[in-house]
Design a protein around this nucleic acid. Structure first.
Length: 356
DNA sequence: AATACGGGGTT
DNA sequence: AACCCAGTATT
């Protein structure tokens, strides 16, 4: 049982000095942080901020350099087909980000980069967080970001278990360094990502621990309280594989779910419908002949648990080169079934029914 | 104010 | 198995 030490009252200028000193000594070196503080390359910052939306830095790093190599300038990005942008985004999730990035690149190529928070906010895919980040990091504008790190750091610092958006923004605005807004924003996010972490915060090394109400409470992880999450919906679907692992009939997915990506032709089961009905409907739409069941796969997304029944089918539809298309993890898993069946050829005849 | 929107990391 | 991640757009 540790003694509860009441936090030292918060003096904004002292908090700024202490966190900025920590940041100058211990901030992360990241590839989008090239150039002078508050004067970073807007293209590099913008691409990074889109890539990092709901995506951890470690994962963003995997995509960032490759993306910039493929599209070194906003003109290159604007001039590329959206399919190429989605291919570079493949596997990263939230593909509307890639579609909006490409759309915004067209606007920027025509009109130039916005130079203010308000100007950035007008671009597709750019919300309050991203606009504040680019405005502060690339143009030195005094805008406080509000992301998951900021939410957690401020909720703990002030001991607020249920911070509202207005509460977070007001406190972020009040704390923002007027002289180093970009560095301050980076500092709070670095603290949240490396010290003030969700599950096991490293309070012993935190530059703000002496002021932290959550630390003083003895249960820092109680702040903020977990967000209520919508239930995961279980859905079933059938897909048909026409072709092989190298070339197959692919369709462009429309709508929100995996929109813009390519994938095996797919049909969701109706409520209390059968896989046979769905398969027949799908093959009728494609004018294809249904074949044997290749296997089932399950795929979890944040809001959905998909069970996909993959069938072989035959048709004269044109096939595409799989390696050139941008596919979701779901479709890569479905194509993987074929690989597994071929490995099993030694033990099992090709026409010998389904395998898993 | 809720919900849809991916895929993976951490505990 | 929770809970979260440098959020945004839509309803």
């Amino acid at each position: 049982m540790t003694a509860v030490v009441p936090p030292v009252p918060l003096d904004p200028s002292q908090i700024r000095a202490e966190l900025l000193a920590w940041f100058d000594a211990s901030g992360r070196a990241l590839p989008w942080r090239l150039g002078q503080e508050g004067r970073r390359d807007p293209y590099r910052v913008w691409v990074a901020e889109i890539l990092l939306q709901q995506t951890q830095v470690a994962r963003g790093l995997h995509y960032y350099d490759r993306f910039l190599e493929a599209f070194p300038t906003v003109q290159a990005l604007a001039g590329a087909p959206v399919e190429a942008v989605l291919k570079a985004w493949e596997g990263c999730g939230y593909y509307a980000r890639a579609r909006n990035l490409h759309r915004a690149a067209g606007l920027i190529a025509a009109d130039g980069f916005p130079t203010t928070y308000v100007g950035w906010l007008a671009l597709p895919g750019v919300g309050p967080y991203t606009a504040a980040a680019v405005a502060s990091l690339a143009y030195g504008e005094g805008r406080a970001v509000n992301d998951g790190n900021v939410r957690r750091v401020l909720a703990r610092l002030y001991g607020e278990a249920r911070p509202t958006e207005n509460w977070i923004q007001a406190h972020a605005d009040a704390l923002l360094s007027p002289t180093r807004p970009g560095a301050w924003n980076e500092a709070v996010m670095d603290l949240g990502a490396t010290v003030c972490t969700p599950k096991a915060p490293r309070c012993a090394t935190c530059p703000l621990s002496a002021h932290c109400a959550a630390r003083a409470s003895g249960t820092p992880t109680a702040f903020p309280a977990p967000k209520v999450r919508t239930a995961v919906k279980a859905v079933q679907a059938v897909a048909v594989l026409i072709g092989d692992e190298r070339t197959a009939v692919l369709e462009r997915r429309e709508g929100g779910l995996l929109g813009g990506l390519m994938g095996l032709p797919m049909q969701e089961l109706r409520e209390s419908g059968t896989t046979q009905n769905a398969l027949n409907a799908l093959c009728k739409r494609l004018n294809a002949r249904p074949g044997e069941l290749l296997g089932q796969i399950t795929h979890s997304m944040t809001h959905r648990q998909i069970t996909l029944h993959v069938y072989v089918a035959a048709s004269d539809l044109p096939r595409q080169t799989v390696a050139d298309a941008a596919l979701s993890r779901l479709d890569h898993k479905a194509l993987g079934l074929l690989q597994r069946r071929q490995e099993g050829l030694f033990a099992m005849p090709l026409t010998g029914g389904s395998s898993v």
